[in-house]
Nucleic acid binder design. Sequence first.
RNA 1: CGGGGUGUAGCGUAGUUUGGUAGCGCGCUUGGUUUGGGACCAAGAGGUCGGGAGUUCAAAUCUCCCCACCCCGACCA
Length: 573
Amino acid sequence: MRVSKMLIPTLREVPAEADAISHQLLLRSGMVRKVAAGVYTLLPLGNKVVKKIENIVREEMNKAGGVELQLPIIQPAELWQESGRWDVYGPEMYRLKDRHGRDFCLGPTHEELITDLFRQEVKSYRQLPLLLYQVHNKYRDERRPRFGLLRGREFIMKDLYSFDKDEDGLEESYHKMYDAYNNIFSRCSLDFRAVEADSGAIGGDVSHEFMVIADTGEDEITFCSGCDYAANIDKTPCHSSGEDAAVEEERPLEKKETPEARTVQDVASYLGVDAAKVIKSLFYNADGKLVVVLVRGDRLVNEIKVKNYLECSMLEPADPDEMRNKYGLPMGFAGPVHLREKADVTILADTEIDNLTNAVAGANKNGYHFVNVNLGRDFQIDNYGDFRFAQVGDVCPCCGAPLQVQHGIEVGHIFKLGTKYSEAMEATIIDEKGKEAPVIMGCYGIGVTRTMAAAVEQCHDQDGIIWPSAISPFEVVIMAVNQRDEPQVNCATEIYQQLVAAGIDVLYDDRRERPGVKFKDADLIGYPARVVIGKKAITEGLIEVKWRSTGEMSFQEKGNIATYLKDALASMM
RNA sequence: CGGGGUGUAGCGUAGUUUGGUAGCGCGCUUGGUUUGGGACCAAGAGGUCGGGAGUUCAAAUCUCCCCACCCCGACCA
């Protein structure tokens, strides 16, 4: 392909709307353009990257026994009503009506459609296992699309659904996908990690996320320095570190004035104590019931753990006005002591609260805190539990070694669904004994466009993108220093044709631009290899090759160039 | 949805406080010179100043309403 026939609108300056580095570079390198918030056009180069990722995904899915099909984007409401998700999904789902007033949605996901297809077409265990997948657009009206392609409202996803006759079959399908996902992201040359994850609203008990490691990632993951353990921080269990506070004699409860000290930090510094000595009391509305969660002042409440413990469908911070007006509990000064006298409230305490002696807690009076608060003597709780977020240095739940924390971008997520959808939608199969039972399902997603953006987040420098060769829009860019110099042009054309013939994905920058412009664009776009035809090529038959990732430059014999590039690129895969 | 911010040519921006009829850099077009890291000279084209209403002799600038986009939070298979 020649640049003169492409559309590669590179930008010299960073568009003001882009903050995330991948967003900036994808715009500047002429790969994508924004159409609306979270909606993007893939320009030729961006489209090519997407196709390369999709092909890797397809190859690995097919290798694992997957079969590709394509489900519609427009989906009838009836199927969603059947699964119960029409009412549950909320405003994130794009809903529309046809001319007859019938309800439809733009598919945010495809469990309903695949389950519907399955129940109509598959009846017998003999047809299982079945792994069906598609690579298609998904639509989610995110409250806040952000970071360019990392969180869009329209995006490309590969989703595969597994159908098995029993748990063992599901286990096998799940492992096939787990392995395939590892292969996919390895082939994309990404630094990633598979981590245990919360299965969330989709249901099921086992779930893994595939995280591309990047400081800018929205997710946090914990991993062990001593063993293989790795998990989403939402899911990481916290065990007591064993470092019980030094045994201290309980001192008498005392109320102290702490004007304007609302945050743990304020209170701790005002009273001159460590934040870990303060009991943080966070009030929640859990399906309409008031709940307070107590954690140490230096800890954060993990609302997912609270929600899972309470088995409630809604958990949100209690309304400060209601707290004050209805119960007389002032925000910032509320605490567990004498709390029950004021409100009917469930009191949950993180396990670490048990270790506190002579702690500090809000006095439920504006401008006051209690000091020397002791559990049992001064307040009671309903239950202990693990309600906090893990932190760096916490003990690994598997081996006890200290945990590390990194940020990541979720590019893949695999779930065991079980019978959630097959039961709701009566997708059953006949087993060996002639008995009818709901089919056992799993679902496995990869965000394709997100993977492209994640790769850029991870692979770039101050000059631009550094594509891993497997997903680069082209493997090699070739150019003449002077596109008006006939010998150079002839030589460049000749080598370009050689490379094409050798099966290398090569782009010829045949623009009559000055070399600096073409060099800058090559660096910005990030082709793995750059071939330059200069004077030396004409006088000595030596061709310059420069590698984007290392900056390494060398001269190759004109006759060897295709072989050299082919070998070098192969060794990078 | 709450908080904050920004909308001026394709991109980046000045001008807004203190109202006087829009400027700069890059890019684009034409001609010429140049050709190993975003060239130079000359001549040009390109703007409903996000939209609407209002105040005023006069609005990019002041007032009100709306919209879009970005950031933080909440939310999220």
